[in-house]
Design a protein around this nucleic acid. Structure first.
Lengths: 153, 153
DNA sequence: GTTTATTATATAGGCTCCTATATAAATCAA
DNA sequence: TTGATTTATATAGGAGCCTATATAATAAAC
């Protein structure tokens, strides 16, 4: 029987990260909506930003989401005119996804708006502190990715 | 016109935090499900862990979610026998929410399972690094909370 | 005391994400 | 070449979050 050490949401990385994630999403959503994007679409936008094309499978892998999540996301983006699907000439199961011209045009302004908001979130942080935070988060994600992969066995 | 500095998902706190949050949720879900909880319910469980009662409004405020999100969460928890609603004698609009005995009983084992998982996520981190991460995340959340509050004007 | 404003919940609708499973095309084996 | 397996995408169903809005009870104003 362990001693009853009382538990504090604000001393553990997991709940702090969850809160930060939701706040970033709410704020990012407002920044990005005027340009016709939504915040969850940005990983896809990021991956296709140079005008290239990828399969859904590859997008899901690189954005680290499950395939059905990516499929739904792409459906919404296609519906909203942000993304185009073309049949893959080499594989009848697969389609190649790319951004539309409309999406590519709005991209720089969208990114600028989002970056501005993200800068505000780091108000009071020195450059070293930002680098420290990024480094720690990267290591944390490496651990988490391994754990997720391991549990998929 | 800005120079086209290319953009890297892994050098910015926002996407790193989003990824970590999703990984924590996936892993936590598996840890906690055998006990009949789901990961999003933990802030409620945490707030009511001593057997006390709170209104929905107060739970939402303390868990930093919107009221409708909390309402839905409590409906699911009531459906699953984790939570009980009693009418507030002083206010006919309000109900007092508390954990059921079943939920209170499963709480220590649930917390132990979750803590174990969260420890693994910090493999390779020194105590100082954990404290550094927590401190930086706390400051980040303070900034974000202010920004969210300010935009609600 | 009746009308008006505020407050606590509830409901509607949508996005992002998940797990589990179905379908269809491609590949591998016999 | 046919049959079994793998692979790419789609669909179903649900959790958790959000915004916007409706309902009902309380409080405030007149």
């Amino acid at each position: 029987m362990q001693p009853m050490i009382d538990w504090n949401l604000f001393s553990n990385p997991a709940p702090l990260i969850n809160m930060a994630s939701r706040s970033f999403a709410r704020l990012g959503e407002r920044r990005v909506r005027p340009f016709g994007f939504s915040i969850g679409q940005l990983p896809v936008v990021y991956l296709l930003r140079h005008g290239g094309a990828m399969s859904q499978k590859e997008l899901a892998r690189l954005a680290k989401t499950e395939q059905p999540s990516m499929a739904q996301m792409l459906s919404r983006m296609e519906r909203d005119g942000l993304v185009r699907r073309a049949p893959d000439p080499d594989d009848g199961r697969s389609q190649l996804i790319s951004l539309t011209e409309a999406a590519l045009e709005k991209l720089p302004a969208t990114r600028a708006a989002l970056d501005e908001g993200n800068q505000h979130a780091l108000a009071g942080f020195s450059e070293d502190e930002v680098q420290m935070l990024v480094g720690l988060l990267r290591r944390l994600n490496e651990n988490l990715d391994q754990m997720v992969a391991r549990e998929g066995e």
